[in-house]
């Protein structure tokens, strides 16, 4: 029978390599699928710059005008908290940074564990609230497909298992850590084939919209 140590080395070894391969290959394929579709040239006389417009919208779309904010305050605030939290926990927790150093050979400054712990709890709560909102809000419930819930689950689990592993809860640490790593690997495998791809493609989307508007001399 597989011990928890065996399990841990299994998820850190072959499973990790496989998940990484699917993750990298999948994302490359998806991005290639998009880029290879190309875009027709615009023959209309420009009023402004595509480049300036595109660059502008990459950033400006993270900001909202007053009326839009009022109408979608919940989605915006909860969305911000969850995304920022996810970023902080993923890239600024010391164990993660050590892993990145092992993989890529360089590191950066991490945040104190207690802070990461707090951010994790806030992020988990934000995600739960967003899930409830998805189930309750008429528009979000109407738009949501099975995929939305899959995506939510595979994003939620790494946060939860990471938190549990750190607090040595339910299972002994090696097993919990193994489960945490496995949950991240599931996320990596699911990533390229679902809406999780927005992490990368949103920059393309913003750029196209911003560039088209920039060409017309409009800031969007």
């Amino acid at each position: 029978m597989m011990t928890s140590i065996d399990f841990l080395s299994w998820v850190r070894g072959p499973v990790f390599i496989m998940a990484t391969a699917i993750f990298v290959f999948g994302i490359s394929l998806r991005l290639l699928e998009i880029v290879s579709l190309r875009r027709k040239p615009d023959y209309s006389a420009p009023r402004g710059s595509r480049m300036v417009g595109g660059m502008r919208t990459l950033f400006s779309r993270s900001m909202y005008d007053k009326s839009t904010f009022q109408r979608s305050a919940f989605t915006i605030v909860a969305g911000y908290i969850f995304h920022l939290g996810l970023f902080i926990v993923t890239f600024l927790s010391v164990p993660h940074i050590l892993l990145f150093r092992e993989l890529f050979g360089f590191d950066w400054f991490g945040l104190p564990t207690i802070l990461i712990d707090a951010v994790t709890v806030i992020t988990l709560l934000a995600m739960l609230v967003l899930l409830i909102h998805r189930l309750k809000n008429p528009v979000r419930r109407f738009l949501s497909t099975f995929e939305n819930y899959v995506v939510w689950t595979v994003t939620f689990l790494p946060l939860l298992t990471g938190y549990m592993a750190y607090h040595h809860s339910v299972f002994p640490y090696p097993l919990m850590l193994g489960l945490h790593i496995l949950s991240v690997e599931i996320l990596m495998v699911v990533f390229p084939f679902t809406q999780l791809m927005h992490t990368f493609t949103l920059f393309m989307a913003r750029w196209h919209t911003g560039a088209n508007a920039g060409h017309r001399g409009i800031q969007v």
Binding site: R30, E33, I34, V35, S36, L37, R38, R39, K40, T68, S72, T75, I76, G79, N137, V139, R140, L143, S144, T145, N148, V151, Q195, M197, H198, T201, L202, M204, A205, H208, T209, N212
Partner: peptide
């Protein structure tokens, strides 16, 4: 085209 593909790939059904 590429913009359409990028747009559909990016939607997270937020409903805004």
């Amino acid at each position: 085209d590429a913009p359409i593909a990028a747009y559909f790939s990016s939607c997270v059904s937020c409903g805004m």
